[in-house]
Structures are given as structure tokens and as C-alpha cells.
């Protein structure tokens, strides 16, 4: 899926650039984005190291286990294949919490850490587990309490009440989360996405 998508994006870009006459822009974009991607990774490295460091303190202090224990009933239902006291639970919880508060910089390191922990429970190397897909979808639909980006842009654009979107965003994300989770529950049982089917 990812390979197909990747080739598709590249081919569509080339074709579109010919149609719109943006071929030159396309060519220069390639080296520019490659460079930007590497710089992004370096930047992320510092942030990542910082948050994983903080997380290790929280783990050693027993905070994460306590936190995971607190919302265990909900997590148990969403991730039936993950043991309740598994480190993945704590990392996922922190990622979800950071996402809800609009702390994208903090969310990514916790998310990567969570995926790594989830992968230790994976008995089919290279194939995503149900828990991973559930987690990725929770991430993309994420209930948003503070839509910081939207508020900042609206305020800069001269909106009188930029915080109006707090309520609309909260409602929209509740809907998208419910639909997203239902979709995961539906698709993870579907034959098309079964692990055996995908693996062959």
C-alpha cells in the first residue's frame, strides 16, 4: 500500500507538472525537500531525545504505570492484544494526551516509542498488528482540546474570536474519532486486511 502510494504520488506529480507547466519548480523541489527532510530529522532528534528522557524519568518514578492503570478499562477494550501493564500502554497514553493538548512536538516521540513497544508483541515481522493500526488511527483522528495551530493562524488573520473553533474542533474530532475507531473495528476483521492475506 505504502509503496504503491509512493510511486503514485511521484508519477502524478511529474504528469501534473507537465500539465501545469511547473516542471522547473518540480525539479528544484526534489533536492530542496531531501535536504529539508534531513534537517527535520536532525531537529526531531533533539526534541525526541528530550522527551524520551523525560519519559524515562516518568517510567522510573512509576508514573506511567499509574497513569496506564487509571484508564486501563478503556485501553483494554481498544487494545485487547496488549497486556495491561505493558510499556506500550504508557507510551500510547502519553502520546494521546499530548495530541489532545495540541503538543505535537511531544506527541511524536511518545508515538514512536509506543510503536516500538507494540512491535515487541508482534509475531509477524514486517506486518502491522491490530493494535498498531488502532493506535495509528487514534492518532490521526485525535480528540483535540486545544487546536493551537488553527487558533494562532485565525488570530494572526485578524479574527475577533479565534477561540470559537475550540468547540467546533472538539465536536468534529469526537465525531471523527468515533467513526475512525468503528472503521478500525470493522476493517481489522475484514478478510482483505487479514494478516495471513497481507503476508502472502
Amino acid at each position: 500500500m505504502l509503496s504503491l502510494l509512493w510511486v503514485g504520488i511521484i508519477v502524478v506529480s511529474v504528469v501534473c507538472s507537465v500539465i501545469t507547466g511547473h516542471v522547473d519548480a518540480l525539479v528544484t523541489s526534489i533536492t530542496a525537500s531531501a535536504k529539508a527532510a534531513f534537517e527535520m530529522a536532525l531537529g526531531l532528534g533533539g526534541i525526541m531525545a528530550f522527551w524520551l528522557g523525560l519519559m524515562k524519568i516518568a517510567e522510573d518514578a512509576g508514573l506511567i504505570r499509574k497513569l496506564a492503570h487509571f484508564i486501563q478499562p478503556l485501553l483494554r477494550r481498544l487494545f485487547p492484544d496488549v497486556p495491561a501493564d505493558h510499556p506500550a500502554m504508557g507510551a500510547m497514553l502519553l502520546n494521546i494526551a499530548a495530541n489532545m493538548l495540541g503538543l505535537a512536538n511531544a506527541a511524536t516521540p511518545f508515538g514512536l516509542k509506543a510503536m516500538e513497544s507494540l512491535n515487541r508483541l508482534n509475531s509477524h515481522p514486517g506486518v502491522a498488528t491490530n493494535a498498531m493500526c488502532m493506535f495509528a488511527t487514534i492518532n490521526t483522528s485525535s480528540v483535540q482540546i486545544i487546536p493551537a495551530t488553527g487558533i494562532a493562524f485565525l488570530a494572526t488573520g485578524g479574527a475577533k474570536h479565534p477561540y470559537d473553533i475550540v468547540v467546533t474542533t472538539l465536536l468534529a474530532t469526537i465525531i471523527s474519532t468515533v467513526v475512525g475507531l468503528s472503521a478500525v473495528c470493522w476493517f481489522q476483521k475484514s478478510k482483505r486486511f487479514a494478516i495471513e492475506e497481507v503476508e502472502s
Binding site: 506486518v127 498498531m132 493500526c133 495509528a136
Partner: peptide, 18 residues
């Protein structure tokens, strides 16, 4: 990024659901 970091190539229903 999430699946790439742990070497998952078959992402199953993750993209569709997202």
C-alpha cells in the same frame, strides 16, 4: 514515519482507516 521506524512494510488497514 510510525510504521517505517519499526520496519513495518505491510500497514494493513492503517491508511484506509486514517
Amino acid at each position: 514515519i510510525y510504521f517505517g521506524a519499526i520496519g513495518i512494510r505491510k500497514t494493513r488497514h492503517a491508511i484506509t482507516c486514517g
